[in-house]
Amino acid sequence: MAQTEPQSVFRLDRINALILVAVFSAAVLLYTKWAKEGKPLFLRKIPGLDAVEEAVGRATEMGRPVLFVPGIAELDEIETIAGVSILGRVAKIVAQYDTPLTVPVRYPLVLAAAQEVVEQSYIEAGKKDNYDRDTVKYVAGEQFAFTANVNGYMMRERPATNIYMGAFFAESLLLAETGNAAGSIQIAGTARPEQLPFFIAACDYTLMGEELYAASAYLSHEPIMTGGLKGQDFVKMIIVICILVGVALAIFGYGNWFIDSFTAS
């Protein structure tokens, strides 16, 4: 009877990815440690995030609400978690200015998380009495029913500021164009390249890709949070060097082993 070799419990074919995860984690932890120790870390300006406070101020002056849409994906999407984290920062500014806030959501889990986040922001701003449980509301589970509801709200209530942060799909342009028609100042952020052109065309400021994930740390102004961003930049630099080395090796016909070492199974 032929005997088969026992298989390893590890995916040895993914060892390259594991090495990258280890390098990445080490870089993030190292920069976070440095940030904790008080080492100054430079962060480039993100105009879209600098505009958030100004946009909320505009809403306050106009006496109109701020609309925040944390994407239309479920809470297991990291983009939605990023959106909810930014909501916490925005809600605190909104609470300080006593501006009405509306947060329509598509999933009950997002509803629960967003309600908790907004309530905590009002508490931290010392405005717990101003918190309305229906600030965050579940409007519809279907993509276009959700869009119809939010668009209707924009045209009726004419919010002064619309903030879209999270995962968006075909509804991105429907939302952004309606907000534009309603005369709102609009700030959007998504990590989906296929939706970015729509937001860029219809919004005043757009956070692209990684900027969405950096937003919460950026708005927090906490050094410990910026450590993660610097670690990320360090790994990005390594990737750029690897790409350049790969291109140079490929041009001279020696690149196969190098490219194969980055291939995922």
Partner: peptide
Amino acid sequence: IIIGAALGAASMSLR
């Protein structure tokens, strides 16, 4: 954009 977003997502996950 995809590489940047993937690193951003990984960094946020780690945080």
